[in-house]
Amino acid sequence: QLNAMAHQIQEMFPQVPYHLVLQDLQLTRSVEITTDNILEGRIQVP
């Protein structure tokens, strides 16, 4: 299920590496919260 959620987020934010999306999802278990984390700059994109 997390993989499906990660792919959904990757479609919206292809610039964010998959492993970072998955790592955040493991903590949040939420597409909405992880999306917010990306938008708020809480996930550092190399």
Rank of each mutant, 00 (worst) to 15 (best):
V31F: 10
L39A: 07
M5Y: 09
D36L: 15
V31T: 06
E40A: 15
Q8P: 01
A4N: 09
D36S: 15
E11S: 13
A6G: 05
L22R: 04
L27E: 11
I38M: 04
I38D: 01
D24C: 09
T34F: 01
Q15R: 10
Q15S: 12
L27R: 11
M5G: 03
T28W: 08
Q26S: 09
V45H: 09
Q26L: 14
S30D: 06
L22N: 00
L27H: 10
V31E: 05
L27K: 12
N37E: 01
M5E: 05
Y18I: 12
N37G: 03
Q1Y: 14
I9R: 01
P46L: 11
D36C: 15
V45P: 09
M12R: 13
S30W: 02
A4W: 14
V21Y: 02
P17G: 03
A6E: 01
I9Q: 01
M12L: 11
Q10M: 14
Q1R: 12
I33H: 09
V21K: 00
L39Q: 07
Q23G: 07
E40D: 08
M12Y: 07
P17N: 06
Q15M: 12
N37V: 02
L39G: 03
D36N: 15
H19L: 10
Q26Y: 14
P14H: 04
R42W: 06
A4S: 09
R42N: 05
P14D: 04
S30R: 04
N3H: 15
I43Y: 04
Q44W: 15
L25W: 02
L39S: 06
L2V: 07
V21L: 10
G41Y: 06
R42C: 06
E40F: 14
L39T: 07
T35P: 00
Q23R: 08
H19N: 10
M12V: 07
P46F: 12
H19S: 09
E32C: 09
N37P: 02
L2I: 11
Q8G: 07
F13D: 01
Q44T: 11
Q23L: 12
P46E: 11
R42A: 05
F13M: 03
T35S: 09
Q10I: 14
H7A: 13
L25E: 01
A4Q: 11
Q26A: 10
S30K: 04
L20N: 03
D24R: 02
F13V: 00
D36R: 15
V16N: 02
L22P: 00
I38A: 02
N3G: 10
V16Q: 02
H7R: 15
G41H: 06
L20G: 02
T28I: 01
R29F: 14
T28V: 01
Q23H: 11
L2K: 01
I33F: 07
I33D: 08
Q26T: 11
A4M: 12
Q23F: 11
H7Q: 13
V21G: 00
I43D: 00
A4T: 09
Q8A: 13
Q15A: 10
V45Q: 10
L20S: 05
I38N: 00
D36G: 13
L27A: 09
L39D: 02
D24Y: 05
Q1V: 13
Y18S: 06
D36F: 15
S30Q: 03
L22K: 04
I38V: 05
I43H: 02
D24E: 03
